[in-house]
Write a protein that binds this DNA or RNA. Structure first.
Lengths: 212, 212
DNA sequence: ACAATTAATGACCGCCAGTCAGTTTGTCAA
DNA sequence: TTGACAAACTGACTGGCGGTCATTAATTGT
């Protein structure tokens, strides 16, 4: 049994190696321009081997996306543990996410690109399912915060926590997960405006949901 | 001079023909899967001819996006003309946009795909510039509505109209222009949830900006 | 009628995702 | 140790697409 276990570990290690290489390549060249051959070179493997671990290039992208989601989720976990008020927790998440953008641009880009990669992927992809699952976790963490605020009295009773959660973080409607706050080829000067809009969103939202 | 004018008209007509064909093909097959050959076939032209009118496939996508923006802009124009209150006008835009999604899904998809196409396009593309310009128009139309509301007293004086505009409609942060409220390959059952989140966004925002 | 200019064509190129027959490496029983 | 079997790995190859360009067709002006 030990050999089987070791093999499993080695397989997992290879997988990680490939994802690590993909991160480097994607971030230095961009998701579109990077090729599977680039990733193979970076990982010192042949292209064929990549396809033993990932069915498509899209799946590699999703693997990086999944890592991003786990990071976000762990941030939220820490925030939830703190003894802050719910409103504070929401603001903390906003602040932490802003830092995340600056410090982990590669992961942030993976989040932005999910819309594209997630929709061009076979429905029964294991990794896609894992991503959907991890998003659900984040969703419930946010709902958790809002509901706690309602119980403690800092947030109005009639606030729709599920919708707040979707407005903040959801791959379809979330303002954090969908806003492009990183330099792309064009219009780099508008990033600050975007960040300011997000700040204002949180200001308005909190104004609307906090108990008077 | 008449001949030159006629030629100009014919050129413009060809261009429209190509965009019409592209719309059909893109919507029936999806932006990614559709090929330039498909568009050429649909338009009864050769592939080479397409490239006499558009530099890249991306530009064809942008041409459709530009049409979408003009539709949105014309909606806003009508809304602004009405004698409604500013809050009413904002709600009208929300309602009209919801109808737009259902009635013009192809154009709606073009809006969603802009992020992808706009960023992979040479900066000096004429059509890209036109898109940016048209977005600026929409932006100023929205600001116009908010500022009018401030003057008339239905919206609080300290509301940041530019940021409201960016939150509603902006290719980086706009909730209407970025939320995916149409069936993609996966997760079709969540559309209603997304729409509900948008509805709630408008509810909260209006609550926060209307004069008490 | 005949250049000259403009429009249209489709065979062709380079590139890349994805495949697969063949090779290497690892395992284990005899 | 050996040999047979399996698992992991390889890279040449394929198909298909975006984009090009030499050639052909159509239009205009003289």
């Amino acid at each position: 049994m030990s050999i089987l276990e070791r093999k499993e570990r080695e397989k997992e290690y290879r997988r990680r190696t490939i994802i690590d290489a993909a991160e480097k390549v994607f971030f230095s060249k961009g998701f579109e321009v990077a090729t599977m051959q680039d990733i193979a070179n970076e990982a010192d493997l042949s292209k064929g081997t990549l396809y033993l671990y990932f069915k498509t290039k899209n799946e590699v992208c999703l693997a990086i996306y999944l890592r991003s989601l786990k990071i976000i989720s762990s941030y939220l976990e820490k925030i939830i543990e703190e003894k802050d008020d719910a409103i504070e927790k929401i603001l903390n998440f906003y602040k932490v996410f802003n830092l995340f953008i600056g410090e982990q641009p590669a992961y942030y880009m993976a989040i932005l690109n999910y819309r594209q990669h997630g929709t061009h992927c076979s429905e029964d992809s294991k990794i896609l399912k894992a991503c959907i699952q991890q998003n659900a976790v984040i969703n419930s963490q946010l709902i958790n915060i809002i509901e706690e605020g309602k119980t403690r009295g800092s947030i109005k009773d009639d606030v729709e926590s599920a919708n707040i959660s979707r407005l903040i973080w959801n791959n379809r409607t979330g303002i954090l997960s969908n806003s492009v706050l990183i330099e792309t080829d064009i219009a780099s000067e508008t990033i600050q405006q975007g960040k300011d809009a997000i700040r204002y969103f949180f200001k308005l939202m909190i104004e609307a949901i906090r108990s008077k």
